[in-house]
């Protein structure tokens, strides 16, 4: 009986495994396949899954498209700067939350929670107004600042969860040996917390890389437009017949960094997501 049941469960798990793999990878395979279809093929209508005559012309075209390469640069620059700054601020805050007793600790955590759930679109109007006044509209800092604000909750939660697991005694030992609170933080906690910080950085980067609402609202030209925004405005000459293959190619290219990060750090990302994340 028991043996039969485990057998049945194993088969179920196998089927589940195949289904999950299909679910996750099939749409990715679809855009990859689409990216190798020629422009002529999609213009004439090409409902089959695989390209008739695979071509790399789309990749050549997209790499030669200055709007796209510029958007890619903007995306990398803005996401990386926002990630680094956000993680620095979040590390300080999370350290205080996990390790120190101070008034308003609960308030900070509630605030972070509230901001994680904040409807970003609600800010588009007032931010648009403020940013045009301050000259931040259509600039890198104009996106970096709100990206930092919206990734801080995620980073603070993830990090304070990691920080709670760091052994107290080490910090106290350092303090007994004459280190100040600050030194204990820098010399003892930072090395121990580095993996957590790294995880928070990945989740933050994903958020910034993915962000769309602010990217289309607070930019107006390619000088600061990120890839998602650029792609949504890239309709080509005929609005009724979008350049399917080229958009698919752009999709594949912006997905590559995500796949690389996921391949390298999957364990860390899962740990981070399940230990205090809010969704990027």
């Amino acid at each position: 009986m028991a043996g039969k049941q485990t057998g049945k469960t194993a088969v179920g798990t196998w089927i589940g495994f195949v289904l999950i793999m299909l679910w996750c990878l099939f749409p990715v395979a679809w855009i990859i396949s689409l990216s190798f279809k020629s422009e002529g093929e999609t213009a004439a209508g090409s409902p089959q899954f695989l390209p008739k005559e695979p071509t790399i012309a789309n990749y050549k075209a997209i790499i030669d498209n200055p709007d796209f390469t510029r958007a890619l640069l903007n995306s990398f620059g803005i996401s990386l700067i926002a990630t680094v700054l956000s993680v620095i601020f979040a590390t300080l805050a999370a350290y205080a939350i996990a390790r120190l007793e101070f008034k308003g600790k609960r308030l900070v955590l509630s605030l972070a929670l509230a901001i994680a759930m904040f409807p970003v679109v609600a800010l588009v109007g007032p931010l648009f107004d403020m940013w045009t006044t301050f000259g931040l509209f259509n600039t890198w800092p104009g996106l970096i600042i709100p990206y930092m604000s919206f990734t801080l909750p995620l980073a603070i939660w993830t990090l304070s969860a990691f920080f709670r697991e760091i052994p107290w005694e080490m910090e106290q030992a350092a303090q007994v040996d004459g280190a100040t609170s600050w030194q204990a933080f820098r010399k003892v906690i930072v090395p121990l917390a580095a993996p957590g910080v790294f995880t928070a950085a990945i989740l933050t980067f994903f958020f910034a890389w993915n962000e769309f609402v602010l990217a289309i609202s607070l930019t107006s030209t390619t000088s600061s437009r990120t890839v998602p925004a650029q792609m949504s405005f890239f309709v080509g000459p005929d609005p009724f017949n979008p350049p399917y293959a080229q958009l698919a190619t752009a999709s594949v290219i912006v997905t590559l960094p995500v796949i690389v990060i996921v391949l390298l750090f999957q364990r860390k990302i899962v740990a981070g997501l399940t230990s205090g994340a809010v969704k990027g």
């Binding site: 495994f17 999950i20 793999m21 679910w23 996750c24 990878l25 749409p27 990715v28 679809w30 855009i31 689409l34 994903f206 890389w209 993915n210 769309f212 890839v227 998602p228 792609m231 949504s232 399917y244 958009l247 698919a248 999709s251 912006v254 997905t255 995500v258 796949i259 990060i261 996921v262 391949l263 999957q266 364990r267 990302i269 899962v270 997501l273």
Partner: peptide, 24 residues
């Protein structure tokens, strides 16, 4: 590991890309 990697791809993919993939 393979499963974790695969399941993180839809999570990490840009929503705009997902929208295009399904629209197409």
């Amino acid at each position: 590991g393979l499963m974790r990697t695969s399941i993180l791809i839809p999570y990490g993919i840009i929503t705009v890309v997902s929208a295009f993939a399904w629209q197409f």
